[in-house]
Nucleic acid binder design. Structure first.
Length: 444
RNA sequence: GUGGCUGUAGCUCAGCUGGUUAGAGCACCAGACUGUGGAUCUGGGUGUCGCGGGUUCGAAUCCCGUCAGCCACCCCA
């Protein structure tokens, strides 16, 4: 008798049980459907890349979080920490076959060796979509529309897409002569929602070394709230004199107007001059999306515009814009909000197994129903009826079909609605057309 | 990565300052009910007290280490 190996998973890595995997796949399917409805096309890339492809591409922080090691051939390799850098490499490598603008989506796991927390894992799935190879703000607008459609399709009504433009921030900092400290300032500013004006002011002065007057100027960004048009005009005054800043405000105005014209509900869209996060490569529009019911979990869909994604891989400039839905974080939120139905079956129809003599009949019936597009599970053995029904009920099957000796003799079947508890007798013709019709009506 | 909290049954937890065979509710399994689930009743504990070591006559309880989860920082999806 050997020693058992403890069954366990690594910190930040998880198993997915059916009741988790079913909604997970459902959301991935929704994301695919929404992306495709805008003409985005799927791609995939390897999980593992040459280290030099990934190292130093995000921020200092993502560099630290990079899983890296030598492979069996002595090559230095790393697991991708996002899908954007691999997309840059991919686009540079296949540019001639792709042509621009290139709209791709990519749903795949990424890895970051950081400390874990609720909604924060070391392996998680991102659902990216990007439009590469165009400067047009139409694509920024479309990105907003996709985020909006996506969250609505998943079932959210109350969420806010916070939108800003890096140029607005850069313009303001330029005007204040603080461009060299942009990173520190944006980092401090970004904490506003958490530590408040006083906290940000302190950090601006102590960490970024701003004077009290400069800090106050920067903080004015956070004081601008309310109506979008009002926010935009005030932003305009704030950056007055800076060409970059004025350009940023103009872009922001155009994107917001376009998004509303394209169908984004006004209450879902907020111009928030204080959002600054995102990886260092963003240069224009930036997006963050928060759930009204659970803002604490962080942004569930972030992104932005970058001027030159693939500068390190090709001399050809490749601007682009896109965003990424954090599937695992979103699911953690939905679980906390009780939005996940406890279903652990993928087949709405359940066939009770009465009698071994009739196995072929059950198999034939199941096949006919599947041909009609219905997902059907046949219980594998003639256990007690009560147990089979209990099993079907627990799993979340919607209807059970009962055919025993009596039914076979009469040429009918019992169709039991497991949710309503009602049952009706349906004739069994050779094509099962009456049954199929009945089931389709029952299942909507 | 830094600091803190937690870890007892499938789940939520109780188990006082160390003391005999480790408990509750829910869930689960079996039966009452060999053709009707969610209800009721009866029966069943389903457990390496996360793991390893130490202190002790004796450890779920105290100490150290480790693994994991959570919280804050950091950063981010």
């Amino acid at each position: 008798m050997g020693t058992l190996i403890p069954a366990r998973t690594l910190k930040g890595f998880r198993d997915y049980l059916p009741q988790m995997m079913i909604p997970r796949e459902r959301i991935m399917e929704i994301a695919r459907r929404v992306y495709r409805s805008y003409g985005f096309v799927p791609i995939d890339t390897p999980a593992l890349e040459y280290l030099e492809i990934l190292a130093g591409k995000g921020s200092e922080e993502t560099d630290k979080q990079l899983y890296r090691f030598q492979d069996h051939g002595g090559r230095w390799v790393a697991l991708r920490f996002d899908l954007t850098v691999p997309a840059a490499r991919f686009t540079a490598q296949h540019l001639n076959e792709l042509g621009t603008p290139f709209k791709r989506y990519h749903i795949a796991p990424v890895w970051r060796g950081e400390n874990t927390q609720r909604g924060r894992y070391r392996e998680f799935v991102q659902c990216d979509f990007d439009t590469i190879g165009t400067h047009s703000l139409t694509s920024d607008i479309e990105t907003t529309l996709v985020i909006h459609d996506l969250l609505r399709a998943i079932g959210f009504r109350e969420f806010t897409i916070r939108i800003n433009n890096r140029r607005v921030l850069n313009g303001l900092l330029e005007r204040l002569g603080l461009s060299d400290r942009a990173v520190l300032i944006l980092r401090a500013l970004d904490k506003w929602g958490k530590i408040g004006s006083e906290g940000v002011k302190r950090e601006l002065e102590e960490v970024a070394g701003l004077t009290a007057e400069q800090a106050a100027e920067v903080l004015r960004l956070t004081e601008i709230h309310g109506d979008m048009d009002e926010v935009l005009s005030r932003a305009e005054r704030l950056v007055q004199g800076s060409a970059v800043g004025e350009e940023g405000v103009a872009e922001l105005r155009e994107v917001v107007r376009g998004a509303v014209a394209g169908g984004v509900a006004r209450e879902c869209l907020i111009v928030d001059l204080a959002i600054a996060r995102g990886l260092d490569y963003y240069t224009g529009t930036i997006y963050e999306t928060f759930l009204a019911a659970l803002p604490g979990i962080g942004s569930v869909c972030s992104g932005g515009r970058y001027d030159n994604l693939a500068a390190l891989f090709t001399t050809q400039p490749l601007p682009g814009v896109g965003a990424s839905l954090g599937l695992d974080r979103l699911l953690a939120a939905m679980e906390e909000l009780g939005m996940l139905e406890a279903v652990s079956t993928t087949a709405p129809v359940f066939i009770v197994f009465f009698d071994h003599q009739h196995r072929d009949d059950y198999l034939r019936l199941a096949a006919q129903l599947r041909t009609a597009g219905l997902a059907v599970e046949l219980y594998p053995e003639p256990k007690k009826l009560a147990q089979q029904l209990k099993y079907a009920d627990r799993r979340g099957h919607r209807v059970a079909i009962l055919i025993g000796e009596d039914e076979f003799r009469k040429g009918v079947c019992q169709v039991k609605d497991l949710k309503a508890g009602t049952q009706s007798e349906v004739p069994l013709d050779p094509q099962c057309s009456a049954l199929i019709e009945h089931l389709q009506r029952l299942l909507g």
